[in-house]
C-alpha cells in the first residue's frame, strides 16, 4: 500500500483489516488516527474544519515521507490516508497504519510519519466558528516533534 489523499471519510477498522488480510509476516500493527475536535484553537465551538492542500505536491511529499520511513525501519507495509475539504467535529482527518515484524519499529515509524507529515505535507487547516473562518496557526511543538527525527 502507500499513500492516499481523499475527500471522503474512511473506516479505520476496514482499512486495517484490508492491510493485514492474508499476511502473517507482521507481528505488530500500530494505528494512529487524528480526529476533528469540537473546539477551535481559540476555545470557541467548532462548526467545521476545511483542509486546503497543494495538489500534486501533497502526494509527492507523502511519498517521500513513506520512503524515508521504509529506509529507517523494517516495515512490512504501511498506509497513510489524509483527507482534504470540509470535515465535521468527530470525523477522522488522518490515518497512519504501520505493519512490522516487531512492535518497536511499528510504533516509531507511525510516530515519525505523523511528526513529519504535520510539518512537511502541504495542508492548511481553516476553522469555522460563529466568529467566522480563521486559519490555524502552526505550532512550535510540531516543529520540535519533527526535529527530533532529523539526522
Amino acid at each position: 500500500m502507500a499513500v492516499r489523499l481523499q475527500r471522503e471519510s474512511f473506516d479505520l477498522g476496514a482499512e486495517v483489516a484490508r492491510l493485514t488480510a492474508g499476511r502473517s509476516d507482521a507481528g505488530a500493527v500500530v494505528t494512529f488516527s487524528g480526529l476533528c475536535r469540537d473546539r477551535a484553537d481559540s476555545g470557541a465551538p467548532l462548526i467545521s474544519l476545511t483542509l486546503e492542500h497543494y495538489p500534486g505536491m501533497v502526494e509527492e511529499e507523502l511519498g517521500r515521507i513513506e520512503q524515508e520511513a521504509r529506509t529507517r525501519w523494517p516495515i512490512a507495509d504501511l498506509l497513510l490516508i489524509h483527507r482534504y475539504g470540509r470535515i465535521l467535529p468527530g470525523e477522522p482527518i488522518v490515518l497512519v497504519v504501520t505493519l512490522s515484524p516487531h512492535r518497536a519499529a511499528a510504533f516509531e515509524a507511525a510516530q515519525f510519519l505523523m511528526d513529519y507529515l504535520k510539518t512537511s505535507a502541504p495542508f492548511w487547516k481553516r476553522e469555522e466558528t460563529e466568529d467566522g473562518p480563521a486559519w490555524v496557526a502552526s505550532k512550535a511543538t510540531d516543529d520540535e516533534a519533527a526535529t527530533r527525527w532529523s539526522r
Binding site: 483542509l51 497543494y54 489524509h82 510539518t119 505535507a121 495542508f123 492548511w124 487547516k125 502552526s138
Partner: peptide
C-alpha cells in the same frame, strides 16, 4: 514556485 504559510495538516 509555490508560496504558503507553515503547514498545519495532520
Amino acid at each position: 514556485i509555490a508560496f504558503f504559510p507553515p503547514m498545519t495538516g495532520g
